[in-house]
Nucleic acid binder design. Structure first.
Lengths: 349, 349
DNA sequence: GTGAAAGCGCTAACAA
DNA sequence: TTGTTAGCGCTTTCAC
């Protein structure tokens, strides 16, 4: 037994055949209690568990799911969205002894596709979880061609409905957070709201902007200035400068941001422009990252149930892999407004 | 060819034997150019690459590296340390077609050990990368027992030298950042420096505190108040309240924190206590996360070369797996002070 | 209740 | 230059 122990070593130690060992560890009955005990003891003594590779080769199940993050290191660090989602995913994966194979590929063109191809062609994973769907997302077609089961977390794009199973908040509830935020600001007397959106090729980013606009319309407020940014802090600063610049129409007294990172950066940009938050300007973020509680003033933001989303994605993926299994997905709380300190009464005109 | 294509399908399509295909894709010569071309064409046509599982079973190499994060989702999200390290690791892994198998296990006792056991016993990975070594870290013994190659990123504990290869800044250069910070504060006239440390069971946390204390001693400054915290924002707030409470001896005019998250939280705690940063109090963080540029005032902090550390860890691990291979690790920049806005002249006494 | 043997997809010796 | 074949560690019929 020079290297790692194999099933044969266990069988020998227990004085039984390999198939007996296999049956015991897989609980496939037909083995006497006494034999089973001897086998278990031998396995424990040798610190043996079935080799995942051998099992995968045999059964075509790798017991791993894949995830590809097409982002630079900096962006990844600045936006813990991924991290939180992953910890939700792991929560569901770990108990059933599945692993998560992660690929961070940066943004070079082609890198993402290569990553998925490898995952599929080398049969390293049973399926993948996608986030941040893009408009006309090429990944759906790619994964279908690769025959790699996939689940999308988040808001699907209409035209892509049915391309991949989608895990998200119950239909119609996704809008709740932004509506609450608009209500909250209106109640505080704000009438001119600005919005800093994420890139227009991201589905959730377009979705949030539209919800904002329709919430405004529902309250009979004038269409607000919307600035499209790129989810980064620098983008938010530039967006703020444009929103607050003296121009046609009055300056907004409150600004919503499509994520917390931008909101925090925007808050400080405002401060550098001589405005105090929330006295002169109210600010609302999106995601409810820990960051929001750290800053001064603490950030009012829209909280998402990211951990639960991650868990639901795994459940859905398992359902795809094994249609027999009853997939009871965890309930996902709709986004809701978390009021902290960065919003306050509208300044007197 | 109902399911995914195999090497046999490719061989059949190219009209050659399976071993010919194997030789071609592995570049093992002894194949005519014409045949090679036919094989490649067939492989491309079928979108085939060798199954990672089969290769692993054959060669004992899984082409995957493991990492276990024993942290709650919140802590993980609040401290992007891991995320950045991972993106460095991936940078090195991707080109050689290795995967990263991640396990986020939370902090329940035993969960971490189980994760490593599974990684080893199921032979899912060729080796693991460790971070955040603890004093008397049980993982070294565990991994040795499991015969799982491991590399530690960061500062090793003396007694554990040699237990696992360590990747870190060149010896003696690790101290640079904190020394620079102390010098910087002294130059600004500060004489009473406080320090908020991380938990005392973390090696890097103890290391940083000691460097701070010896830097103070080297400058002939009185031993400063040190408060031990837990790396979280809440901990930092409590620490701040203790440091700034009126008590024996004068209040510090500057405080160093063992990470950026605590520094930002501490900065805002100070503000709530009526102090303005940097006018009344200077603050220095550690890590140089993107967060530091977002907040107001922007955080002066000690930057670490985390991406490079991740890359070096992979190189070192590969060296362990294959002693033949010349492992030329990337040069890692020592920590250095990044001066921004949260430090300023000491207030007049 | 238990064991022998045939593969899963691939690589590397060995033959041709 | 090319093809044949024996495993890698496991699960699963199918005999006993």
């Amino acid at each position: 037994m020079a290297g790692k122990p194999t099933i044969a070593d266990v069988a020998r130690l227990a004085g039984v055949s390999v198939s007996a060992v296999s049956k015991v560890v897989n609980g496939r009955g037909g083995i006497s209690a006494a034999t089973a005990e001897r086998v278990l003891a031998a396995a424990a003594k040798l610190d043996w568990s079935p080799s995942a590779t051998a099992v995968a080769l045999r059964g075509a199940r790798t017991r791993a799911v894949g995830m590809v993050a097409a982002r630079s290191a900096d962006l990844l660090a600045a936006d813990p969205h991924f991290t939180v989602l992953i910890s939700g995913i792991e929560r569901e994966l770990a108990p059933v002894d599945y692993g998560l194979l992660l690929h961070v590929v940066g943004e070079e063109p082609g890198a993402e596709e290569r990553a998925y191809r490898r995952l599929a062609q080398e049969r390293r994973v049973d399926g993948v979880i996608l986030t941040e769907s893009r408009i006309g997302d090429p990944r759906f077609a790619l994964l279908r061609r690769l025959r790699l089961p996939a689940v999308l977390v988040g808001v699907p794009w209409h035209e892509e409905g049915g391309e991949a199973p989608v895990v998200s908040v119950r239909a119609g509830e996704q809008e709740a957070g932004i509506r609450q935020a608009v209500d909250h600001l209106c109640a505080l007397g704000h009438r001119r709201l600005g919005y800093v959106s994420g890139p227009e090729d991201r589905v959730h980013s377009v979705f949030r902007r539209r919800v904002f606009e329709s919430a405004l319309a529902a309250r009979g407020l004038a269409p607000a200035p919307v600035v499209v940014s790129d989810f980064t802090a620098q983008g938010a600063v530039a967006a703020m400068e444009r929103l607050l610049a003296p121009g046609p129409g009055a300056r907004p007294t409150a600004v919503l941001f499509a994520n917390d990172t931008m909101a925090v950066a925007g808050m400080n940009a405002a401060r550098r422009l001589g405005l105090e938050v929330p006295r002169d300007l109210s600010v609302v973020g999106y995601d409810d990252l820990p960051l929001g509680e750290l800053v001064y003033p603490r950030l009012t933001t829209i909280g998402q149930d990211l951990v639960r989303l991650g868990r639901a994605a795994v459940t859905a993926l398992f359902g795809l892999l094994d249609p027999e299994r009853p997939a009871r997905a965890p309930e996902i709380r709709p986004p809701r407004l978390v009021v902290r300190e960065s919003t306050g009464p509208a300044p007197a005109p």
